[in-house]
């Protein structure tokens, strides 16, 4: 389990590091696979876990990366790469590390954390996702980081409570699936309408 967590964290770091959107697709797909593995391994196998794991695999490992991949293929090469990380992102990362340690320090005595290492990985992935969503400029990067945060959150739930209630788990998946579909569709339309995939250019509405 901890190894899965470590792998997932590394994939999250990979998401942050990579600027090529095609790599992003693979990283996301990898995260999806890891998550479904985690669902299957964290609890005794029942029909419910099998269904949840399968759904995770379908939505996070297949649907979302597939959608991104399909859209990307139709775009010219210039729109498939993100900008480099700005310098201030590194500063934010340091701050995030501080905040994470603060929270872990606070939560230590409460005994709510079941798997400390996994908890760290989860929190770190979430924060990497936050840094990424603020620092990256490609529309799809934002979507990818949103998914990555959600993935980290699932790991967080696992580290704290073993698993989320099935109802919530499935609801989350559906929500995320719809959200990702909508956003991929939207990024397509934004690309059509404005010939850009850079969120910086989305600043006409102001004041």
């Amino acid at each position: 389990m901890n190894d899965l967590g470590l792998l997932l964290f590394l994939l999250a770091l990979g998401l942050l590091w990579s600027r090529t959107m095609h790599h992003t697709v693979w990283f996301l797909a990898g995260e999806g696979v890891l998550l479904s593995l985690m669902v299957w391994t964290s609890e005794p196998v029942t029909a419910v876990t099998v269904v949840v794991g399968l759904a995770t695999l379908v939505v996070k490992g297949g649907l979302i990366p597939g959608l991104i991949h399909r859209i990307l293929r139709t775009w010219p090469a210039a729109f498939r790469r993100d900008h480099p990380l700005p310098l201030w992102a590194y500063g934010i990362t340091v701050l995030v590390v501080l905040a994470v340690s603060h929270v872990i320090h606070l939560l230590g005595p409460t005994g709510v954390i079941q798997h400390a290492l996994l908890f760290f990985y989860a929190l770190a992935s979430i924060h990497v996702g936050f840094v990424m969503i603020v620092a990256r400029r490609h529309l799809l990067s934002q979507l990818a980081s949103l998914v990555a945060i959600e993935n980290g959150l699932v790991v967080l739930a696992v580290s704290l409570a073993g698993a989320l209630p099935t109802f919530i788990e499935l609801g989350l998946l559906i929500d995320l699936g719809i959200a990702a579909t909508l956003m991929v569709w939207m990024s397509h339309r934004i690309h059509q309408a404005m010939h850009t995939t850079d969120v910086i250019t989305l600043r006409r509405l102001r004041g």
Partner: peptide, 25 residues
């Protein structure tokens, strides 16, 4: 405050949450 860039807006949200967490004790 409402200057346009979505990343700035996200930074507001996350920054405020971070600030509150830092105040936590």
């Amino acid at each position: 405050i409402q200057r346009g860039p979505v990343r700035l807006y996200l930074a507001y949200v996350l920054g405020t949450v971070g600030l509150m967490l830092a105040l936590l004790h």
